[in-house]
Nucleic acid binder design. Structure first.
Lengths: 134, 134
DNA sequence: GTTCATGCAAATCGTTTGCACAATG
DNA sequence: CATTGTGCAAACGATTTGCATGAAC
């Protein structure tokens, strides 16, 4: 029906190769710049289109929040967030903030960690209730 | 010298009040809509400008990554990230992914958590080395 | 009266989309 | 040959900025 069957595309193949061969979490432009050598007429639109196809295929992912909007917060203290994948609410959590995690990272990687952040994704209580009641 | 001294602004005062009085992590438009009642001629630009001032003053913050670009990843497995605040590298960590955290959240809040993510922020080994060597 | 803030509109930036043509199956 | 992919440029949506006017100090 409305199922899309993907055809092979040299561009998409190369994008996945590039993406799999790096751990730098590239931007679309980074990929575009590198692919220009193989496809001199390549357009950025093609890169974006193929990245979205790769995501739909479960072969890649985007590192983002649920939202395209910037979200602001006057609560400066460290706390963790829960992001509801249905209603897109961002909910503060008051579970214990584990500063020890930062030490672990610094010891394993020789970094100097200043802060960390945890986001949980799933369904909030309201959306869970709505789901069950119908 | 180039120090900016902020003057009082009724708009900024109200924005901070709004932001402090909610835990919904609003968008600029959400704030704008609410402030329209008090300032019928308010413009979105003013909201954005003041939010940035509040952040500069340390009274608010934006929930984002270091980058305004979407970042892509072909590594689908769960892992944590370290984000260098100097060179903006995003580095995969292979410290243990603690699924137990999700249970904690679900029990405390009656949510259904599907996944979680941890980001550490600080200086990576390379930037640390550069800092010391000068 | 000098400096900073505002409203407005235009500009910017990353990303998406419409279209005519090319490649795939 | 029916369908999907491409390059190009235009459109989009969120945020920023230039400018003339207004408020703060």
């Amino acid at each position: 029906m409305a199922d899309i069957k993907y055809k092979n595309s040299k561009q998409r193949k190369k994008i996945l190769e590039l993406l799999s061969g790096t751990d730098t979490h590239p931007t679309a432009t980074w990929i575009y710049d590198r692919l220009k050598k193989d496809f001199p007429n390549l357009s950025l639109g093609t890169v974006y289109r193929n990245l979205n196809i790769l995501i739909a295929q479960g072969l890649a992912r985007k590192i983002d929040f649920g939202s395209t909007f910037d979200r602001y917060d006057a609560n400066i203290t460290t706390h963790y967030h829960f992001i509801c994948e249905k209603c897109h609410a961002i909910i503060d959590l008051d579970i214990h903030v584990d500063k020890n995690l930062e030490k672990k990272v610094d010891q394993a990687m020789h970094f100097k960690t200043k802060k960390h952040r945890i986001e949980f994704f799933g369904l909030c209580d309201k959306c869970l209730a709505n789901k069950k009641s119908r």
